[in-house]
Simulated scan of single mutants.
Amino acid sequence: MQQAGSTIEARTSDSAPGEIWPFTVTLATPAIGAYVSDIDLRQPLDEPTYLALRRALIRYKVLFFRDQDITPAQHVALGQRFGKLEVHPVIAHHPDHPELVVFDKSDKKRGRENIYHSDVSWREVPSMGSILRCAECPPTGGDTIWVNMALAYENLPAEVKARLEGLIAVHDLMPLFGSMLPPEQRITVRAQNPAVTHPVVRTHPESGEKLLFVNEAFTTHFSNYAEIAGYRFGFDLKLAEMDLLQYLFRQAAAPEYQVRLKWEPHTIAFWDNRATQHYAVQDYYPAVRRMMRATIIGERPV
C-alpha cells in the first residue's frame, strides 16, 4: 500500500544493487520505517522471503504491513521464524498462546504505554524484535511512534559521545511494572527479574551501527558514572549523572528521528528493538484498543 508523499522502492534494494526482493517496499519517512506489501503473512515464510524481510528490518528498523488478517497461531509462527519467543512475566497473555501478550484497553482499563522505551531492555538478554498486531483499533487516535536510535546516537555532539565511552546503565522492570502487581507477586517477580546492566552505547550485531541504548521506562541510572566522570562532591556527581541521563532520554523525542503509524484493523508492525524505541499514544480513552504482541529474544548487548 503506497502512502502519500512516499517513495516506492518496488522490488529492488539499493543496499544490494541488482537484488530482487519478493515484496514491495514503500518508504515511510527518510529516517525510519517502511510499508511492505505484496506479501501474505498467513503463509509460512520461505527462506528467500525470510532473509529479505530480515534485511529490510535491519535497514528500515520498523516494517508496517496492512490487511494481514492472521490468527494468533499464525502470529506466533511468524515470530518464531525469526527466533525464540519470550513469555512476559507481568503483561496478560493470550489464553492459548503464552508467547502473545495482549494489550486490552477500554473504558475500564486505560493504556499506560505512553513512554519511550525498548521492549524488555530490563532482561539480561533483551529483545531482538517485536511483532504487534491490531485486533481492534479505536476509530481515531491510538497511534504508535518509533524512533531511530542509530540516528539519535550519530547526531550527538562529539563531546557527549566522549562522555558516553565506557558508561554502563542499569535497566529495571520494577519502576514501571511493580506498581501493577500485588505485594506478594511483586516479591516473586523481583526475585526472578533482577536489575541488569547494559552499555549505554551498544553495537548492532547485524548492521554494526552504534545505538543509543537507554530509555526512560526502564533505565534507572548509570552503574559506573563516578568511575568514568571522577568524584568532586556527592551532590555534584549525582546531579551531573541525572542531567546526562535525562539529556539522553530526550533524544528519542526528536521528530526528525521518528515515524508515526496510524493503526487500522489487521495492521502489523515489526520492529527491531535493538535499534529503536517506541511510544504508544494514549489519546483514545475510553475507546477500545486491543493489540497482540510477540517478542523475539535477541542477544546480550555489547
Rank of each mutant, 00 (worst) to 15 (best):
L57A: 04
P286L: 13
A229Q: 11
P301I: 07
H171M: 09
Q3N: 14
V189G: 02
L173N: 04
E206N: 09
E264D: 11
A252R: 00
F82Q: 03
K108W: 15
M1Q: 08
Y257T: 01
H221R: 14
Q277E: 07
P301L: 08
G230I: 11
A287Q: 11
P255R: 06
H88P: 03
K262S: 13
A280I: 05
Q258V: 04
R59L: 12
P48E: 12
H198D: 03
T12S: 07
H266F: 15
G230K: 05
I268M: 06
R300E: 13
T49W: 07
C134D: 02
T144N: 00
I145C: 01
R110Y: 11
K84E: 14
V302H: 12
Y35H: 07
T26E: 14
E154D: 12
I268C: 04
L173W: 04
G5R: 02
L63S: 08
Q282W: 12
N193H: 14
T49N: 03
F235D: 11
A254G: 10
P95R: 06
S130F: 08
P139D: 13
G5M: 05
Q282F: 13
S13A: 11
I297Y: 07
S13D: 14
P265T: 08
C137E: 05
H266M: 10
E216W: 07
W146G: 01
L151G: 01
R112F: 15
L248I: 14
R110F: 14
V160L: 10
M174T: 08
E9N: 13
